[in-house]
Amino acid sequence: MKLSSEMIAALRAGGEKDVVTYLTTSSVSGKCNLYLQPYTDVYREEFIISPDLFAQKTKININENRVGLMTVAHPVKGSLWAFRGPCNIIQWGHPPKFAFHGVTAGEALEKWGDWSKLEPYDTVAEDLRPKAVGQRGVIVLKVEEVYNLSPASSGARIS
């Protein structure tokens, strides 16, 4: 599904909001993990892209259960959304033709494989700035549903 212009503005790399997000994944037996992710971008209006920076448990979960759910942690004003859908990590070493829901490893790694080309890592708050950067790949979330996270309407489908 297509994200709204407001959602895209919040999640786009180098955007004015600079959101911090969590990516929730789960093992196949139901143990959740929330991965703190200060960098995101949007592709074709329906994919949320982020760098794999030491996403160790996320990778284990995605390898056995390809579903992800991204929520905005900060700033939240007007951004109480949850984005859910198929999720995978395209890693350095995947052949260029490897594809996930139409996104090829070649295009993903060329555009987002070195995140510092899009935005410097030090644009985020000092507490979140990685002391060492070892980007191993690109996390791709295909958004299939968006729901509301505001307390009174939590869970209501936005689209």
Binding site: G30, K31, C32, L34, N65, L69, A82, L149
Partner: peptide, 18 residues
């Protein structure tokens, strides 16, 4: 917190409580 839950088969749902 953001509270991550999942079905027994691992389908996640997150809520936010302030």
């Amino acid at each position: 917190a953001h509270i991550g839950t999942a079905t027994k088969q691992g389908y996640p749902t997150t809520i936010v409580v302030e």
